[in-house]
């Protein structure tokens, strides 16, 4: 542990947004090391989703760059980034509603169709509920089940890094806990996680490191526990003093 690990994913000084002249990111940076769970928190409009989209080629930043295992992937089209080993689960519209569960998974393996069957087998092992309902339309799933399918779909590409945009948004409390357990299980299989969360406390509790964003800039960075226990972070971003 003496050596500084080199990050698998690194965003450096990103500046940009959706339309010209309106920058949402104002020089923010992020890095994730192999095997970590990295959580990004911050108030609404801080640029969390924009940051994740910029890292996945959905937005090309005006300045700064994104490196994946040393390769510059700034503005690279998403299907090529997927092939390099990074997947993304959007916050909304993250399943194909009229496709069956099995077909949803198949779409996730577009870049590796030769290995479709064993990969699907692994997903069903990990998420038995999906196996039971594999021939059903995906829009019949509950909110929590949808998130599992969305994660499973992203994992079908066998990524080494998974980007999650608020996986617990709009879920019932029990489903939220399930989603976080899922994230930890995926991580235990060696997948590096970068996750945006509104449930900041719960998310930081499972995070190796956290990034607090505000106005498109880094505000605080540190191990998840430290951020949880930092009175300033607690007061500003976790809705009150720590207990």
């Amino acid at each position: 542990m003496s050596e500084e690990p080199s990050p698998v994913l690194r965003a450096d000084g990103l500046v940009g947004g959706y339309v010209e002249g309106v920058d949402i990111l104002n020089g923010c940076s992020l890095d994730a090391n192999e095997g970590e769970i990295v959580v990004v928190i911050g108030p609404n409009g801080a640029g969390k989703s924009t940051l994740i989209k910029a890292m996945f080629g959905l937005i090309t930043p005006r300045e700064g760059r994104v490196l994946f295992r040393g390769t510059d992937i700034t503005g690279m089209p998403p299907h090529r980034i997927t092939r390099l080993g990074m997947s993304y689960v959007p916050q909304v519209e993250n399943i194909f509603p009229s496709l069956t569960i099995q077909e949803n998974l198949e779409m996730g393996a577009s870049q590796g169709r030769a290995e479709l069957a064993p990969r699907m087998e692994r997903m069903f092992e990990m998420f038995p509920i999906l196996l039971e309902r594999r021939r059903h339309r995906a829009d019949g799933l509950s909110g929590g089940e949808r998130q599992m399918l969305a994660v499973a779909r992203a994992l079908m590409a066998e990524p080494s890094v998974l980007l999650l945009d608020e996986p617990s948004a709009g879920l019932a409390p029990r489903a939220v806990a399930e989603v976080f357990q899922t994230v930890q299980r995926v991580n235990a299989n060696g997948v590096t996680i970068v996750m945006i969360e509104q449930n900041a406390r719960d998310a930081l509790a499972i995070a190796d490191r956290g990034f607090v964003l505000e106005s498109g800039q880094n505000r605080f960075t540190g191990p998840g526990r430290d951020l949880l226990n930092d009175p300033k972070v607690a007061e500003l971003y976790l809705g009150g003093a720590t207990t």
Binding site: F56, P77, P78, P90, N94, F96, S98, E103, M107, S110
Partner: peptide, 18 residues
């Protein structure tokens, strides 16, 4: 199947690697 996927959500199809 990927045609049906695009018809469900073009954006998701793109980020899925299709």
């Amino acid at each position: 199947k990927s045609m049906r996927a695009l018809s469900d959500s073009f954006a998701l199809a793109e980020v899925s690697g299709i």
